[in-house]
Design a binder for these strands. Structure first.
Lengths: 140, 140
DNA sequence: CGGGATCCTACGGGATACTG
DNA sequence: CAGTATCCCGTAGGATCCCG
């Protein structure tokens, strides 16, 4: 098992400038951005549909997330001058490319979350990665 | 440019169960985890070396990050019974696989951060994605 | 319907001091 | 050296009310 270190390529080099990583993580690391992109993945949707499709999101966060995504050119916002007003949001090509990247990351998560869960459960028994207070608590 | 929509595959389907995505984002979405993994990418290091190599991290956050990574089996912690004490941290195979996944994401960021920056700058002029207060402020 | 403005709270996370 | 414990503050983000 130790010989199967690398699947593709000799060694994935860590980028010298890790600023790019933080840039994308600052965007998708928050609680709602990824869910919003994923929901829009199905096609253009209006504000109220998004709020209904993303369980637990507040309009404050939905509005903010949509604005950030629009600013970065990941989604488009189209307002129709009707009554009642209608606003539709849709992924741009750039947004779709980010979605694809996130899907790839989700692939890693799906492949390894079982292993991670097992490791975490094992640590729970061993006491690894916990403070002494937690150890004392579990001893009570 | 609009014809180059998809690079590989017909359409990256969004995972039905997006729980995996949140799982990995909850891990790498914070401020320090990715930097820690990237630093350990060079090889095993001790606590003080990590603190020196990750500019701006506090021992509180370094300790916490290391504990979480150890719990999930992404890094190993080896304490040598010496004086002065020495503790070394190293990526596991699982940790390396996560690093590779993050490097892939960084690839996306590197490829598109220019476009994003341009979009954001354009929005700055247009007023897209900003509140009316911000528009008024820029008008002063 | 699609938000904007405001209030309030929980928590991430920095600074500092202490311990084995 | 390698942490732990405590204090403290800024901000993400939920709840609520209001407006075009």
């Amino acid at each position: 098992m130790a010989s199967a270190r690398r699947i593709s390529g000799p060694c994935q080099a860590w980028p010298e400038d890790s600023a790019f990583i933080r840039e994308v993580l600052d965007r998708i690391g928050d609680k709602w951005t990824v869910l919003t992109i994923g929901t829009l993945s199905a096609g253009a949707m209006r504000y109220s549909d998004l709020q209904a499709s993303i369980p637990g999101i507040s309009q404050r966060m939905l509005t903010q997330t949509l604005k950030h995504l629009e600013r970065d050119g990941l989604i488009t916002r189209t307002a129709y001058a009707e009554v009642p007003p209608r606003v539709e949001y849709a992924l741009t090509d750039l947004g779709r490319s980010l979605r694809d990247a996130v899907v790839a990351l989700a692939g890693w998560a799906a492949a390894h979350h079982g292993e991670i869960a097992r490791n975490r459960a094992a640590s729970e028994l061993t006491g690894v990665g916990r403070g002494k207070a937690a150890l004392r608590a579990s001893a009570d």
